[in-house]
Design a protein around this nucleic acid. Sequence first.
RNA 1: GUGGCCGUAGCUCAGCUGGUAGAGUCCCGGGUUGUGAUCCCGGUUGUCGUGGGUUCGAGUCCCAUCGGCCACCCCA
Length: 424
Amino acid sequence: MTQEIQPVRGMNDVLPAEIGAWQAVEGAARELLTAYGYEEIRIPVVERTELFKRAIGEYTDVVEKEMYTFADQGGDSLTLRPEATAGVMRALISNGMLRGQRHKLWCAGPMFRHERPQKGRYRQFHQIDVEAVGLPGPDVDAELIALTARLWRRLGIERVRLEINSLGTPEARRVYREKLIEYFRSHHERLDADSRRRLEGNPLRILDSKNPEMRELIEAAPVLTDHLDPESREHFQALCASLEAIGIPFRINPRLVRGLDYYSRTVFEWITDALGAQDAVCSGGRYDGLIAQLGGESTPGIGFAMGIERLVALLTQSGPVASAAGPDVYIVLSGAQATAAGVALAERLRAELPNRRFELNLGGGNFKAQFRRADRSAAALALILGDDELARGVASLKPLRREAGQSESPLSTLAVAIEAMLAG
RNA sequence: GUGGCCGUAGCUCAGCUGGUAGAGUCCCGGGUUGUGAUCCCGGUUGUCGUGGGUUCGAGUCCCAUCGGCCACCCCA
C-alpha cells in the first residue's frame, strides 16, 4: 500500500456527526445578526502581509510568530488571514464604502495561526466576525454586547461570563504605558522572564500574567482605568449604565488588555470555565484609529469575533446536538424489475412531494439488509416495491416508528397515500 | 517555541517479566427464497505510527522521528 497522506497539523475535518452543532451555531448567529440589521460580507482568505502588520501591530505575537506567510509566484508577500477585522476594513476602504457612511457587517470563515494545537486551539479555526463602522458609540457598544448575550441564550449556553474594560484613547494609553514601564522597572528584580521580555515591547501584557508569584506586584501596579482621558471615561460609564439597564451582568477587569494593537476604548471578552485553558469564547472591542491607520478616511469602529469551535464545544458538552432528522420515506426494492424502476419512482415522488425527503436504497443488498438500513436511517416510513407489486401496479407502505399495519397503495396515488400516512 | 502523557483492525480497547497478535463493535452473508430489535452461525480487515538499534527472537527494551491529547505561551 502506498503511504497515506496525513492531514495538516492543527487543521481538522468537521464530520457529519458534528455538523449539527456547527449549523446550530451558524444558523442562530445568522438569524440574530440579520434581525439586528447586520449584512453579510465575504472577503478573501489571503491578504497582503503588510495589511496584518499594520492593523494588528508588528510586535504582537500573532504577527511575529503565528502567521502563515508565503511569497506568491510574483514575489508578493501574502498571508493567510489570522483574523477578520483587518480584511473587512481593507474591503471597506478598497470599495469606497466609507465617506462618513455607516456599515453593520458580519462574515464567517476560517482563520489561520501557526500555534501549537491544544484543546480549543487549532491552526485552522473558524470565526464569526461582526463589525460596526461609522458609529462612535457607546450605544453600538452596548447593542453589540446585547446581541452576543442573546445569542448565548438562544443556543442555551450558560457557562459564560462577561468582562469589560476601557483602554482609553491611544494618547491616554501612551501616558499610562510610560507610568507602567516606570513602575515595573523599579521592581525589575521581581519580574519573571516573560514579563522582562514584555517590559519594553508590550508592558500592558504583563498585567495579564498568570504567574501567581507576580500577582502581588501586578495588583499594586497603576490601574489603566485611573488614567483614562475624560471622554473615554464618560464613554465607558455610559456603556456600563446601558448594560445595567439591559440587565446583562458584567465584571470590569482593568487588566483585560487584548493582544491586538488596534483596540481603543471599549474591550470585552466572554469567558468560560468549561473549556480548559482556552477560555475566551467571544471577544472584541473598539478600534477607532484602525481605518485611518490603514489609509482610509478616519472612521470609528467596533467589532468582535466568536470562535465557532469553542462555541460548538460548549454546546456539545451536555450531549451531541442532533443533526438533520432522518428521511421521511426509505424506499426498499426487491427483484430485478423493481430495482430497475427504483430511481424513476423516487424521482417522481420527489417531484410530487418536494418537501418530503426520500432515501432510495442504493447499491442493492438483500431484503433484511435494506430494512436494517431503513431502520437506521430513522425514516418514518418504508416504501416497498417488489417485482410482484410492480406487476400489480402497487407499492407497500409500512410505518417504522409506530405500531401500525402495512398497507398497499396504487402507484398512481402513492403521493397521496404517503402524505396521509406521514400526517397520521 | 518549551514540558508531561499517549500511538495495536474502520471505531473502542486487551496483549503480565521479550517467544511471532486478540476481543467487542461496525460491515457483509446465512439461519428466516420479502420485513427492522434480540439471538445463533460464518466471513473480510493489521507494514502493532515511522525509521534505526539491542537480541537467536521486539507490539513489548533503547534511540530518533512523525502524529495525537493536555499544559505553558498566546488567543477565538
